[in-house]
C-alpha cells in the first residue's frame, strides 16, 4: 500500500469512528449516572431510524433534519420510559440483573412493536446524499459519513458543555462520582436520572436517524451495534464522554487497518500475514477482553482527571 492508500484508510477509520461514537454516547451517559447497561439502546437506535424514515416518507423531511427532530422527541420518550419502568429498579452502584432483564425485555417489546407497525421488510432512506461522495485526488469520501461524523462531534461537544457548564451536568457528575454524597448535598437523584435517561435516549434516537442513512434497517436493526457500543464504552471507561471518542477511534482504526495491514507472526520464523476479513468481527471481542484485563477503568484512566467529563 502506498501513502495515499494509508491516508484513505485512516480517513475511513475516522469516519467509521464517528458512526461508532454517535451510537455509543447515549449508552455511556445512562451507564455513568444510573449504572444501567441499556440493552434497549439497540431498540432506541432502531426506533430513531424508523422515525427518520416516517418523516422522510410522509412529510419529505430530510433525514438529517429528521434525526435532529428525533432529539427532543426521544428525550421525552426516554423520560417517559424512565418514569414508567426504570425508576422502579432497585438502586445500586453496580449493574444489576434486574436492570439487564428489564432493558432486554423492553428491547424485545420495541422490536415487536416495530414488527407490528412496519413489518419485517428491510427499509432504506435514499436521498441524493446517500450515494454521493467527495473526491479529493484518489480518495473518495462518502458525504453521508461526513455528516454522521460531524453530528457525532457535535454530540460530544454538546455533552461536554452540558457536563461542565450546567446545573444538570454538575448533578450528573456528582452522581457518577458518589451518589450518596450527591444526595446529601441536595442533588435530586430521581430527577437527574430521569433527565439523563431522556438525554441518553435522545442521543440514541438521533444516532438511529443518522444510521438509517448509512444502512438498510429492519426491526432487528441495532443488534450488531450493541456489542460495539458496549466495547466502546468499556474502552472509554464506562463513564467518560471523551473516553467514548477515544474508544470509537481505537476500535475503528483496529477494525479498518486490522484486515489491511500484514501483521508479523512468529511460526518457525517471522513472517507477515493479513488478518482475514472474516475475522474482522473478532476484533471488538478481543479488544474487550484485553481492555478488561489490562485497563479495567478504560483508556481515559491513562490520562489526567481533567480529561474526564465526569
Amino acid at each position: 500500500m502506498d501513502s495515499v492508500e494509508y491516508l484513505d484508510l485512516l480517513l475511513k477509520a475516522l469516519l467509521l469512528a464517528g458512526v461508532y461514537a454517535a451510537m455509543a454516547v447515549g449508552m455511556t451517559v445512562i451507564y455513568g449516572v444510573m449504572k444501567i447497561v441499556n440493552l434497549a439502546h439497540a431498540g432506541f437506535l432502531m426506533m430513531g431510524a424508523y422515525f427518520a424514515l416516517e418523516l422522510f416518507q410522509r412529510f419529505h423531511v430530510d433525514p438529517i433534519l429528521g434525526a435532529i427532530i428525533a432529539l427532543p422527541v426521544f428525550f421525552l420518550f426516554g423520560m417517559a420510559v424512565h418514569w414508567l419502568l426504570v425508576r422502579w429498579l432497585p438502586k445500586s452502584d453496580t449493574p444489576t440483573l434486574a436492570s439487564l432483564l428489564l432493558m432486554f425485555g423492553f428491547w424485545l417489546v420495541l422490536q415487536n412493536i416495530a414488527y407490528l407497525v412496519w413489518g419485517n421488510e428491510d427499509q432504506s432512506i435514499l436521498t441524493p446524499l446517500t450515494l454521493s461522495s467527495v473526491q479529493i485526488g484518489q480518495i473518495s469520501i462518502p458525504k453521508v459519513n461526513l455528516v454522521v461524523f460531524a453530528a457525532a462531534v457535535f454530540c460530544m461537544v454538546v455533552l461536554q458543555i452540558v457536563f461542565h457548564r450546567s446545573w444538570f451536568g454538575r448533578s450528573m457528575r456528582a452522581l457518577i462520582q458518589n451518589p450518596y454524597a450527591a444526595q446529601i448535598v441536595g442533588v435530586d437523584d430521581q430527577k437527574t436520572a430521569r433527565l439523563t435517561f431522556g438525554l441518553g435516549t435522545a442521543f440514541a434516537g438521533f444516532a438511529g436517524g443518522l444510521l438509517g442513512m448509512l444502512f438498510s434497517f429492519s426491526p432487528d436493526f441495532g443488534r450488531p451495534f450493541l456489542l460495539r457500543s458496549f466495547v466502546i464504552i468499556v474502552l472509554g471507561g464506562l463513564e467518560s464522554v471523551s473516553g467514548v471518542a477515544l474508544g470509537a477511534i481505537l476500535l475503528a482504526i483496529l477494525e479498518t487497518f486490522g484486515i489491511n495491514i500484514a501483521l508479523p507472526v512468529y511460526w518457525h520464523g517471522w513472517s507477515f500475514h493479513y488478518l482475514p476479513p472474516s475475522y474482522q468481527q473478532v476484533i471488538p471481542f478481543a479488544l474487550l477482553v484485553v481492555v478488561l484485563l489490562i485497563l479495567p477503568k478504560g483508556l481515559s484512566s491513562l490520562f489526567s482527571r481533567k480529561w474526564k467529563a465526569a
Binding site: 492508500e5 484513505d8 484508510l9 450488531p224 477494525e255 479498518t256 484486515i259 489491511n260 476479513p277 474482522q280
Partner: peptide, 20 residues
C-alpha cells in the same frame, strides 16, 4: 479471494482491499 462475516456492518476495509 476473501471472505466476510454474515451481517457485517462495515465493509470499508475489505472494499479498500478490492480497490487495491
Amino acid at each position: 479471494n476473501e471472505k466476510f462475516e454474515l451481517g457485517a456492518t462495515d465493509f470499508s476495509g475489505i472494499l479498500q482491499k478490492v480497490k487495491n
